[in-house]
Amino acid sequence: MLMKVCGMKYSDNISALASLKPDMMGFIFYPKSKRFVDKKVLEMSFREFDENISKVAVFVNKSAEFIASDLVGLHFDYIQLHGKEPIEEVIKLKNYGYKIIKAFPMSNAFEWDRTEAYEAYCDYFVFDTSSPNHGGSGQQFDWNILKNYQGKTPFLLSGGISIQDIEQIKKFQHPQLAGIDINSKFEIEPGLKDIDLVQKMIKEFRR
């Protein structure tokens, strides 16, 4: 399964995490987030970035034109959309050549037909805990909700995952579960990952 580490912000921390070789690394382009990343940091960090690690840019309610313009020269692999982006914007981003991850906020009241329009255009979904701040809550949702997901698009499990959840993750069964997305439970402060803790998680996860 895939290991995605999201919310990276500092150059040295990005380099240290890259040495652990996660499958994906996520960077937040949402200005209201405490993990909002400076593009100058990315320009420096990406000069010698492992090409085997997929780079994911996370946006909230921005147009495809804005995203494409904002990312010129940074060579991201995936765009993760974490707001209420209409399918038309997803299609435009696909036409720009990006792979797409669409996040959905999970709650007991979630209506699964909301995912259907995105099926044909998204490489992955992220199922995250519902939060007014569009993620980063550090809280888990009830994973049993996902039993109601009957779609064909693979998904990453997100929302308050910690190293204490590793056995529960391994036991969790769903035909479309592709991996996990970790963030706040592995931080010293917002945007600064505890490298030793992430290393331990990756080792246990891939065992």
Rank of each mutant, 00 (worst) to 15 (best):
S45V: 10
F46D: 05
R47M: 09
E48F: 13
E48A: 10
F49Q: 04
D50I: 04
I53C: 08
S54P: 01
K55H: 11
V56E: 01
V56P: 04
A57H: 10
K62T: 13
A64S: 12
F66E: 12
I67W: 13
A68G: 06
A68Y: 13
A68Q: 13
S69E: 15
S69N: 14
S69I: 00
V72G: 00
V72K: 14
G73N: 07
L74V: 05
L74H: 11
Y78D: 07
H82K: 09
E85R: 05
E85H: 07
P86C: 02
E89I: 00
I91N: 01
L93F: 12
K94A: 03
Y96F: 13
I100F: 06
I100A: 03
I101D: 01
F110S: 00
E111Q: 03
R114T: 10
T115Q: 00
E116V: 14
E119N: 08
Y121I: 00
F125A: 06
F125V: 05
V126F: 04
V126C: 02
F127P: 06
P132N: 08
N133A: 15
H134D: 13
H134P: 07
H134S: 12
S137N: 09
D142H: 14
W143R: 11
I145Q: 15
N148A: 15
N148I: 04
T153G: 01
P154S: 01
L157C: 06
S158N: 05
